[in-house]
Simulated scan of single mutants.
Amino acid sequence: MQVNASARKVQDLKPFPDLQEVLQYENQNVVDGLRKALDITQETAQELFKEGVKWLWYCCHPDTKNSRNIDNAMLIIDEVWHTFILYTGDYFSFCHRYFGRYIHHAPTTAAEAAKQRAESKKDRMLRKRKQYELIFDILGKETFIRWYHEYPEIYSRENILALRRK
Score class of each variant (00 low, 15 high):
Glu158Cys: 05
Trp147Gly: 00
Gln131Thr: 03
Ala45Leu: 08
Lys9Ile: 08
Ile160Gln: 05
Thr108Lys: 05
His149Thr: 05
Cys59His: 04
Glu47Gln: 09
Leu134Met: 09
Phe99Lys: 01
Glu119Arg: 11
Asp32His: 10
Thr88Ala: 02
Phe92Val: 00
Gln42Asn: 11
Arg101Phe: 09
Ile138Leu: 13
Asn72Phe: 13
Asp63Ile: 04
Asn29Pro: 13
Ser156Tyr: 13
Lys115Trp: 14
Lys121Asp: 08
Leu161Lys: 11
Ile77Met: 07
Leu56Ser: 02
Arg146Gln: 13
Arg157Asp: 15
Phe49Val: 02
Glu21Leu: 15
Leu134Asp: 04
Tyr25Thr: 01
Gln46Glu: 15
Glu153Ala: 07
Thr88Gln: 11
Asp78Val: 03
Ser120Arg: 07
Tyr102Phe: 15
Ala118Asp: 14
Lys9Tyr: 13
Ser6Asn: 08
Arg164Ala: 03
Asp71Pro: 12
Thr64Tyr: 13
Val31Cys: 05
Met1Val: 10
Gly52Phe: 08
Asn72Gly: 09
Lys50Pro: 12
Tyr148Pro: 10
Pro17His: 00
Phe84Thr: 01
Thr88Pro: 14
Asn4Arg: 08
Ile145Asn: 07
Ile138Asp: 04
Arg165Ser: 01
Lys54Trp: 07
Tyr58Cys: 01
Gln42Ser: 03
Ser156Asp: 10
Ala114Ser: 11
Ala114Glu: 13
Ala73Met: 07
His149Gly: 00
Ser156Val: 08
Met1Gln: 11
Val31Ser: 02
Ile160Gly: 06
Lys121Leu: 12
Arg97Pro: 15
Lys50Leu: 10
Leu134Val: 04
Arg127Gln: 09
Cys60Ala: 07
Tyr151Gln: 01
Arg165Glu: 07
Trp147Val: 01
Glu153Asn: 10
